Computed example of a mutant assay.
Amino acid sequence: MKFWDSFLTWLKIKKKEANILIVGLDNSGKSTVVQYFQSGGKRTEVTVPTIGFKVEKFQNAGLTLTAFDMSGQSKYRSLWERYYSDCHGVIFVIDSSDTMRMAVASNELLLMIQHPEMVKNRSTTTTGVPILILANKSDLQVAIPIGQIRAELGLDEINTHPIHLEASNALTGVGLHAGLEWLSDQIIKLNF
């Protein structure tokens, strides 16, 4: 069946589809990231915090992405793991100006990376699910420098997942396209 799916995709009869999770602490900018991609870069004035999760679709690099925008409030974070088994990639959004909760974001990232569903055999590789980390609000004067974020999240010690850290601003789109291109390439390389 895998051969047949690959053959149809190669003939462009079957479209490449992937599920991505968009996670991170509350108020990090997850919904704003989704709105940016879904609207084609048009700015939305009002962003309502996500309760539970929302599902949105958008296109990138020949992929149809189904994005599960998960709430980052502490009482909803346990829902994230219910979607790990079917995800092809993760966008982990952090608020790079929130110095007080960087340790909490680091802990949530570590819990996610260590979950068995995130490192299971994917296609023909044993690589874990690719993770794009968006250091959102990086344009603010109080934002933590990207090198310090890399160190605080311990990204250099993680070797079980392809990981990319990108400075971003979800309101203007800075860093979003480059990050999504990286994630799309990883998803295609590992799954199709």
Results as ranks from 00 to 15, higher is better:
Met1Lys: 14
Met1Pro: 06
Phe3Leu: 15
Phe7Ser: 12
Leu8Gly: 04
Leu8Asn: 06
Leu8Ala: 09
Leu8Val: 09
Lys14Ser: 11
Glu17Lys: 09
Ala18Val: 10
Ile20Gln: 07
Gly24Ala: 08
Gly24Pro: 09
Asn27Gly: 10
Ser28Asn: 10
Ser28His: 10
Ser28Ala: 15
Lys30Ile: 08
Thr32Ser: 13
Thr32His: 06
Val33His: 01
Gln35Ser: 13
Gln35Ile: 02
Tyr36Gln: 09
Gln38Val: 15
Ser39Ala: 13
Lys42Ser: 11
Lys42Gln: 14
Thr47Ser: 08
Pro49Tyr: 02
Gly52Cys: 08
Phe53Lys: 04
Lys57Tyr: 11
Phe58Asp: 04
Phe58Met: 10
Gln59Ala: 04
Thr64Ala: 00
Thr66Met: 08
Ala67Ser: 09
Gln73Lys: 14
Gln73Thr: 14
Gln73Ala: 14
Lys75Tyr: 13
Arg77Val: 03
Arg77Pro: 05
Ser78Thr: 09
Trp80Met: 03
Glu81Met: 01
Ser85Glu: 14
His88Thr: 11
Gly89Ser: 08
Ile91Pro: 10
Ser96Glu: 07
Ser97Thr: 09
Thr99Val: 12
Ala103Leu: 09
Ala105Met: 01
Ala105Arg: 07
Ser106Ala: 15
Leu109Gln: 02
Leu109Thr: 02
Leu111Lys: 15
His115Glu: 06
Val119Trp: 03
Lys120Ala: 12
Ser123Arg: 04
Thr124Trp: 05
Thr125Ser: 14
Thr126Arg: 14
Thr126Tyr: 11
Thr127Tyr: 06
Pro130His: 10
Ile133Gly: 05
Leu134Glu: 09
Ala135Asn: 07
Lys137Thr: 05
Ser138Lys: 02
Asp139Gly: 12
Leu140Cys: 00
Gln141Tyr: 00
Val142Glu: 12
Ile146Cys: 05
Gln148His: 04
Leu153Ala: 06
Ile158Pro: 00
Asn159Thr: 00
Ile163Asp: 01
Ile163Pro: 00
His164Val: 01
His164Leu: 07
Glu166Trp: 01
Asn169Trp: 07
Asn169Pro: 01
Thr172Ile: 03
Val174Leu: 13
Ser184Trp: 04
Asp185Leu: 06
Gln186Trp: 00
Ile187Pro: 02
Ile188Trp: 00
Lys189Phe: 06
Lys189Gly: 05
Phe192Pro: 07
